[in-house]
Simulated assay, not measured.
Amino acid sequence: MSSTAQSTLSAETPNTKSIDEFDTIIAGLKVHKVNTSAFRRSLTCAYDPRQSSMAIGSSGVSVISLRIQTLFISDWFDVSVNGTSPILIPHFLNEIPAKVDLQVQVVHGGKPYIFPGIGSTQRDDDIAAEYGGVAFLYNTQHLKVFVSVAKEHTRGYGRIITTGGGSYSGPFSSMFVTGKVRTRVWRLPELPTPIFSITSGLSISTDFPYQHLTVCFGTYPDLVTVQLVFNDGYVTEGTGVTPVTADDTGTNNICGVVFGVTQTSITLWAPSKNEDMVACFCDGWGSENLR
């Protein structure tokens, strides 16, 4: 009966609406996804009182190793304390890489070990203690790689890698003043699809040295990259920790932005005392004076 009634109605009242009128009716029935409760819930996190959800274990270590197809891998280049700094390594992307991995290789007991480079030097050469590492920044064409280089009044002891002595202990204790470096770079399409990204409207400085972003990962993310973009087109990266010997009461330069993540946030910190900088490659780091 219902079907017959509908047919009769169609016959008695033919449809005279235009396509534009139908489009208007359909548009009025649509709801943009940002106005749905599902979308709003994706931007918030429910409180979970379980200890495993609220904190990373105080003594636990998690190691995640991934194999992601690499767009470009450079040759190995020799580096040494008091040698050439910076050296240029072209990457041929003609765009800012989405991710850069600077690999630093040293040899101990006939076995090569590879360590990651750092996105900024962490202090200058003003303190009579070991300093160093291998630092880098990059643009659309190449990487600049920096190692420690003594000046006339240098007080620090430059190193490429330190694996022992002082506060460190492990399977071997050594310090290295020579090594090799190479770079691996990726564009965004070669990486897994990001679950969160912000590319504008965020800044950090020694005057405003703190940023806190509320997000909702749902779990600890496998990979987080923080890129610091400068006015000259160069980019460097934030680091996870700052293992430095420093003197904040003097003119010692402390540099580098560190970051940490939880299931619900990303937090950035920059140094903010005396002569500190968000990134620097100067005063004991070679021929250029970048800060």
Score class of each variant (00 low, 15 high):
54 M>I: 10
287 S>N: 06
35 N>C: 13
280 C>A: 14
171 P>D: 13
160 I>C: 00
265 S>K: 11
31 V>P: 08
149 V>A: 05
152 E>W: 01
149 V>F: 04
100 V>R: 06
136 F>N: 01
174 S>P: 01
285 W>A: 02
55 A>W: 10
161 I>C: 02
226 V>P: 06
249 T>Q: 00
45 C>I: 11
49 P>L: 08
277 M>G: 07
125 D>H: 07
24 T>I: 11
208 F>I: 13
20 D>L: 09
40 R>S: 12
290 L>N: 04
232 D>F: 02
69 Q>N: 13
39 F>L: 03
38 A>I: 09
40 R>C: 02
132 G>T: 03
283 D>N: 14
223 L>Y: 09
85 S>E: 01
104 V>F: 10
167 S>C: 09
194 P>Q: 07
235 V>T: 15
177 V>R: 07
291 R>K: 15
184 R>S: 14
172 F>Q: 07
190 E>M: 02
256 G>W: 12
120 S>D: 05
83 G>P: 02
8 T>S: 09
221 P>E: 10
92 F>T: 04
35 N>E: 14
220 Y>T: 12
216 C>N: 15
65 S>D: 14
192 P>G: 03
29 L>T: 11
231 N>M: 08
159 R>D: 03
55 A>K: 12
240 G>I: 05
256 G>T: 03
150 A>R: 04
25 I>C: 06
10 S>Q: 13
72 F>Y: 15
188 L>E: 15
162 T>S: 07
290 L>I: 15
14 P>A: 12
80 S>F: 04
180 K>V: 01
49 P>E: 10
67 R>I: 00
109 G>K: 03
16 T>L: 14
210 Y>G: 04
153 H>I: 08
274 N>R: 15
202 L>Q: 13
272 S>V: 02
9 L>E: 11
215 V>I: 14
28 G>Q: 12
119 G>I: 03
67 R>L: 08
55 A>D: 02
212 H>V: 05
90 P>Y: 07
287 S>R: 11
36 T>S: 09
159 R>L: 01
93 L>I: 05
242 T>R: 04
230 F>L: 12
82 N>M: 03
45 C>W: 05
214 T>M: 05
162 T>L: 06
154 T>G: 04
165 G>K: 02
78 D>A: 06
218 G>R: 08
13 T>A: 09
101 D>F: 12
189 P>V: 07
61 V>M: 10
154 T>H: 00
139 N>S: 08
120 S>F: 12
257 V>F: 15
216 C>E: 09
8 T>E: 12
29 L>R: 14
99 K>M: 15
117 G>Q: 06
26 I>H: 08
126 D>M: 07
193 T>Q: 14
132 G>A: 03
56 I>G: 14
280 C>L: 02
188 L>Q: 15
145 V>R: 01
178 T>K: 08
221 P>Q: 09
219 T>P: 00
250 G>R: 01
267 T>K: 09
36 T>I: 03
41 R>L: 11
227 Q>L: 15
142 H>T: 00
208 F>P: 00
99 K>A: 14
17 K>F: 14
272 S>C: 13
258 V>Y: 13
195 I>K: 05
93 L>Q: 07
264 T>D: 12
30 K>H: 11
176 F>Q: 06
128 A>G: 04
110 G>P: 01
100 V>A: 10
4 T>C: 14
76 W>N: 08
277 M>Q: 13
152 E>D: 13
75 D>C: 05
189 P>R: 05
1 M>P: 06
82 N>E: 00
